[in-house]
Computed example of a mutant assay.
Amino acid sequence: MKIRELATGLQFPEGPIAMNDGSVLLVEIARGTLTRVTPDGKVHVVADLGGGPNGAAIGPDGAVYVCNNGGFAWTRDPGNYLRPIGQAHDYSGGRIERVNLHTGKFERVYEQVDGIGLRGPNDLVFDAHGGFYFTDLGKVREHEMDRGGLFYAQPNGSGIHAVAKPVMTPNGIALSPNGQTLYYAETEGARLWAFDVTAPGQLRKDPWPSPQGARMVVASPANHWQRFDSMAVDAEGNVCVATLMHGGISIVSPDGQHVQHVPLPDPFTTNICFGGPNRRTAYITLSATGRLVAIDDWPTAGLALNYNA
């Protein structure tokens, strides 16, 4: 596969959205911005959100909804690789934000669930009914870490509830082509989990020993030091999971029986989305090195999202 570099110098890019005009929206977590990369490689800030904007998706109203984790502390490793190392000293609280693409104005839609503040919202996906599922990974501090959860919410702020909790380090989240399976990636254990969706915002739960009611699709091979990050689903239902440390994209069949790894030159390959003609172009964030790249000949077309702009 041939890799095209579209933009460099980004400050830990994540949350790519392939737009119909050929541009790519993404967040720069370390910069605190929602950013647009145009087809000619120019970089424009859409909104200065502060905190730690993470996953992003277009909602049914055409606005961009952003999971903001409230901010990370950062370090640079050998090779000048940038990576997060825990909760920021100026952590500003987790929230879901709505951004008007025309004006750049933004507002907080959710900051808490049942009186408990969001800690580190990470990624989200809209279903065909106009609601969205999102993960809250939690935050890591020197001597402790949060347990997170999965939630379902309405974009107009009218309702939010937990669909699974507590959950250890939930990160990427995605729906199957028919919308009947909800996948999420567990970062620390490098495991891909799945729930059956029984109704909008309702999941079937497996009994113990499932830790949160999900069924495990696949786990990282024991001989690979890796973690799972964000994801996208292709038109055939395969789950394409950004894989940290063993940098690249892991392509997992829906039953977990087949796993293919596409290596990429960044240990913090964090997210993927599909766009271009027939959605055969994969746009991938290489976060430690601050790049957005594209692969035009992805083996399978990406799944069309429920909303785009």
Score class of each variant (00 low, 15 high):
2 K>Q: 15
2 K>P: 02
13 P>M: 11
18 A>I: 01
19 M>Q: 12
21 D>R: 09
21 D>N: 14
23 S>A: 13
29 I>Y: 00
31 R>G: 12
31 R>M: 07
32 G>F: 06
32 G>Q: 07
34 L>K: 06
36 R>H: 03
38 T>A: 15
41 G>L: 12
48 D>C: 06
48 D>P: 01
48 D>Q: 14
49 L>Y: 11
50 G>M: 11
51 G>P: 11
54 N>I: 06
59 G>K: 09
59 G>H: 08
60 P>D: 05
64 V>P: 07
65 Y>L: 03
69 N>D: 14
70 G>S: 11
71 G>A: 11
71 G>P: 03
74 W>C: 06
78 P>G: 14
79 G>K: 15
82 L>T: 15
86 G>H: 09
87 Q>F: 01
89 H>P: 12
89 H>R: 15
90 D>M: 07
90 D>H: 13
91 Y>L: 09
95 R>I: 00
102 H>Q: 12
104 G>S: 04
105 K>I: 11
105 K>A: 15
108 R>W: 06
109 V>T: 05
111 E>R: 05
113 V>F: 04
138 G>W: 00
139 K>T: 12
142 E>A: 14
143 H>Q: 14
146 D>A: 08
147 R>E: 06
151 F>G: 03
153 A>H: 04
153 A>P: 03
154 Q>S: 11
161 H>T: 04
162 A>I: 04
170 P>I: 03
174 A>V: 04
179 G>I: 02
181 T>D: 04
183 Y>F: 15
184 Y>S: 13
186 E>N: 14
188 E>V: 15
189 G>F: 14
189 G>I: 10
193 W>F: 13
196 D>M: 01
201 G>D: 06
202 Q>I: 11
202 Q>L: 11
204 R>D: 07
205 K>E: 03
207 P>F: 01
207 P>V: 02
209 P>N: 02
213 G>E: 05
215 R>V: 13
227 R>M: 13
228 F>T: 07
234 D>K: 05
235 A>M: 08
237 G>R: 00
242 A>G: 10
242 A>T: 05
243 T>I: 07
255 D>L: 13
257 Q>A: 14
263 P>C: 09
265 P>W: 13
267 P>T: 10
270 T>F: 10
272 I>F: 04
273 C>R: 02
274 F>Q: 05
277 P>G: 01
282 A>F: 08
283 Y>D: 03
285 T>E: 09
286 L>S: 13
287 S>C: 07
292 L>N: 08
294 A>P: 09
296 D>A: 11
305 L>N: 13
306 N>I: 03
308 N>M: 05
